[in-house]
Design a protein around this nucleic acid. Structure first.
Length: 276
DNA sequence: GTCCAGGCATGCA
DNA sequence: TGCATGCATGGA
């Protein structure tokens, strides 16, 4: 991959295994919007970003080298060799099919609190409505930036609200879970940053101390927010796919990369509906 | 109207 | 331990 500074932009070329469409719209992040064909805007770590994808390059608009390496290089998981991982996963023919189907997917390294809050909202919910609830959460309780884009509200801000206050986001029964999570993060009872370096099982148990966080939500937070690439969230689609495609067991070649395999399988199953 | 959505807590055996 | 049920909301 080539990284060049061109004017006020950063340009990537010779890219392998990265499609904005597949990465930003595959159900791991909920705040990226497509403005026009190939052009996306969003925010992470309180930094607004607009970027564009063409056949052979990706342009990060108005981005300094400093911001690129401080935030986006890691956010888009650019230091990981996906070619190599895909070739390992391809030892299993079904996994190869799923990986080829979603070869542009990368696992985003999202902000831990935003990931936790988002996947609490995701439970027993569908993706369009998850996006709606998170959008209202940001518009009502985040700060507006100069682009008119709202930040994701901090755990401290959410912790200061009552369940009734959260009514405007129309999250239903999940409001009490969001509130409990915010309080445990804000008062330091759970330190999300510290969970990055714990082993996956211990970190999962910590997350599950939060009211409304079970194994699946915890695994999503581990995978998408805490760099535990071996976490394997099992939602309804993964369970269906595991039964139908793999006879219930994840192939051995996915060892250590379960989370990446999971995302290929999820995208394949969710998109094709497994011909149900 | 019924069913379902990137589940979880609760009660009961 | 495992299994059934209720849960808010909105689109299909």
């Amino acid at each position: 991959m080539k990284i060049e500074e061109k004017g006020k932009n950063i340009e990537l070329s010779d890219i392998s295994c990265l499609s904005l469409k597949e990465t930003l719209d595959c159900g791991q992040a909920f705040r990226w919007e497509q403005l026009e064909d190939g052009v996306w805007q969003g925010m992470a770590y309180n930094e607004y970003l607009k970027l564009c994808e063409t056949q052979d390059k990706i342009v990060f608009f108005d981005t300094t080298k400093e911001d690129f390496y401080n935030i986006w290089y890691s956010y888009f998981d650019l230091d990981r060799d996906y070619e190599k991982i895909v070739s390992t996963l391809s030892e299993n023919p079904v996994l190869k099919k799923a990986a080829d189907f979603g070869k542009g997917i990368r696992i985003l390294k999202q902000e831990p609190w935003e990931t936790l809050c988002s996947f609490i909202i995701s439970q027993n919910n569908n993706i369009p409505r998850i996006k709606g609830i998170i959008g209202r959460l940001c518009e009502n309780f985040g700060d507006v930036s100069d682009n008119g884009f709202y930040t994701f509200p901090s755990a401290e801000k959410i912790a200061s609200l009552s369940i009734e206050d959260l009514g405007v986001i129309r999250s239903g029964f999940r409001a009490k879970y969001i509130s409990d999570a915010a309080k445990k993060i804000a008062n330091g009872e759970i330190n999300l940053e510290a969970l990055k370096t714990l082993d996956t099982d211990t970190a999962r148990n910590e997350l599950m101390k939060i009211y409304g966080v079970g194994k699946k939500v915890a695994d999503c937070v581990l995978l998408f927010g805490l760099s535990h690439i071996n976490a394997f969230p099992q939602d309804v689609w993964i369970k269906r796919a595991m039964e139908k495609l793999f006879g219930g067991e994840i192939p051995h070649c996915a060892k250590g990369y379960e989370g990446i395999a999971q995302q290929y399988i999820f995208h394949y199953a969710h998109t094709t509906k497994l011909d149900i």
